[in-house]
Design a protein around this nucleic acid. Structure first.
Lengths: 335, 335
DNA sequence: GCTATTTCTGAAACCGATTTCAGAAAATGT
DNA sequence: ACATTTTCTGAAATCGGTTTCAGAAATAGC
């Protein structure tokens, strides 16, 4: 567009016959400016194709107009959707997101947070993660902070969560209502609140109809496909019969699906299979996976709004998001 | 850590009994500094837990130490891996990536590029996209630019690609060698070079063994799961028999898989199915998908290195990346 | 031992904005 | 019509660094 990339506020001031201060004022609308000068400035900016230097702005104003967003894994189905939500939520605001990947390693996470702070982000959104709670509490003291998918004691009003227990309860109940009694559960990493809550929902659903959950039917996975596969094999090995498997996320359901396929066990004819998350490709499993949808994009959006509110000094209220049962074809009535 | 976040270079200077200039010099290693002063400065920085203000640095130096990375879709299996590669490639450098999502919309893309330029990124990595070629050429003139997954005329030495034709040729040939003669192909969006190249590889492989590609067996998809499903249904409707389907990417293969499942057509017993990309979940398709792997992470890494070289004034040479046939279980010998 | 280099160093200008402050101009009150 | 308030405006300081420039100190040359 222009070869000379060096148009500064001084050029505009000169061109419009006003002072730099005035230019700054029409730029930021901090103080009213007489209509004619205002027009002149606007015209000059348009004529010279002026773009303010973000660094000068940030240095002078102390604001960076950026929000740090820390995910745990680029390519994780659910987190990616949350990130997209954040992106969307920030779209019409002056703020831009800065993304980083914590790779589920506390050290990496903390380094990323430090980097964000060094870059003077105005706010921080953390999605999941293992970062120690003290660090989070400390960080929240220094910076507007929203945490998605974790529940940190003492930071309740900073945490945005989905009702995991309710979701797990609902899908377990759905299986029960279709006649299943022996329902296996492959959990996530139980150190994560969400995994623990899903396990709790599963147990409660069983208990509520008078079924005592059997320890042989519960096995801990790590949320990854591979672990779903191995857990299923382990389950089969243990020998305690079951007619359905509830995986704590869809990725593990994919793993379970493969293990069953390898053994020639049909889904849903021989074993019913359900997951949690409703990640984008779950509708394309063979058979399409019945699962629990979490409003991930909506949560990302909300996280963005919330962090902006925190920046403005408000204190957003963060609802517990509700899940939805998505019925597809991986479950059949128990016979 | 510290309540007083305002430690500046002046504080360090005072504490170490030197001038600001000297502090700056030990910080940037631009000019040698006497050992004793150097130590004093380092000690002061450590004692006061000094963090340079990135904005001041960028403003003064004219460098932002950031690289803009434009993907087309957070959550796209292949692009996400490329992004991770970029992240890794930048890891040990002073540069940080800024990510944006073009959503496959030229306007969004261009806006994102403008935003990057406003933020004075030192370099730009574009992954895929529809942005008009003139814009790209212009952008490359202004800023170090690397484009992954597109071949833009006039910007050959800025484009990082995989040998799509070779990959498509190899996997088609693999099918042929197993006795398949009637091989359907669901293409990507043919306006994309990569889709066109994959189609070309498919055709060439057939022609090389004396098979004339039949137009009824080629159908254009759009790289998405849904389109793989619809294309397969269309293929079935057309009535021309085939024993294998080659999808231009794995996502469409998932769609095709579902369409076949719905019709009760077995994979690979009745129809063999192959894809392209080897996205992370392809190993967990039922049956696991035979496909072509592209070294996506490696490409992201290389893109990062290359853009850094461009920034330094070098001109990196960008190899055409080679693909690899990944044999799994979705193909059987034709009988 | 004295000049010619080389190596370090600090003062001051600069990067491109924002913001304070005080004064000028305009609007208001009576 | 004159004092008082309210609105606008520009000069100058500031944000926190980097970089130029010229001089001081140290080293080398002969």
């Amino acid at each position: 567009m222009s070869l000379n990339e060096k148009i500064t506020i001084a050029d505009i001031a000169a061109h419009a016959q006003v002072s730099k201060s005035t230019v700054s004022r029409v730029l930021n609308e901090t103080t009213p400016v007489a209509a004619d000068k205002r027009e002149a400035v606007l015209a000059a900016m348009a004529a010279l194709n002026y773009k303010p230097n973000v660094f000068a702005q940030s240095l002078a104003s102390g604001q960076s107009l950026s929000i740090g967003v820390l995910t745990q894994n680029f390519g994780s189905p659910v987190y990616d959707v949350i990130m997209r939500g954040v992106l969307l939520g920030l779209e019409e605001t002056p703020y831009s997101p800065l993304f980083a990947d914590g790779r589920w390693q506390p050290e990496t996470e903390q380094k990323a947070i430090e980097t964000f702070l060094d870059r003077r982000v105005d706010g921080l959104i953390l999605i999941g993660g293992y970062c120690p709670e003290e660090v989070l509490v400390e960080t929240a003291r220094r910076t507007p902070l929203i945490i998605v998918g974790r529940e940190v004691p003492g930071l309740h009003n900073h945490c945005l969560n989905v009702d995991n227990e309710q979701g797990a309860y609902a899908i377990t109940r759905y299986l029960i209502d279709l006649g299943h009694q022996d329902i296996a559960h492959i959990t996530g990493i139980l150190a994560h609140e969400d995994a623990a809550q899903r396990l709790q929902g599963y147990r409660q659903a069983l208990l509520d109809v008078g079924i005592e959950p059997h320890p042989d039917l519960v096995i801990e996975g790590n949320f990854r496909r591979q672990s779903g596969m191995m857990a299923t094999e382990m389950l089969l090995l243990r020998g305690r019969p079951f007619s359905a498997i509830f995986c704590a996320n869809d990725q593990m359901a994919f793993g379970a699906r493969l293990a069953l396929y390898r053994r020639g066990i049909r889904v849903p004819d021989d074993v019913s299979l359900v997951g949690f998350d409703d990640q984008p490709d779950s509708a394309f499993m063979t058979p399409p996976l019945t699962t629990i949808r979490q409003p991930a994009e909506e949560m990302g959006r909300m996280a963005a709004m919330a962090v902006l509110q925190l920046i403005k000094g408000g204190s957003p209220d963060l609802p517990l998001f509700q899940t939805e049962l998505v019925i597809r074809e991986s479950v059949s009535r128990h016979h």
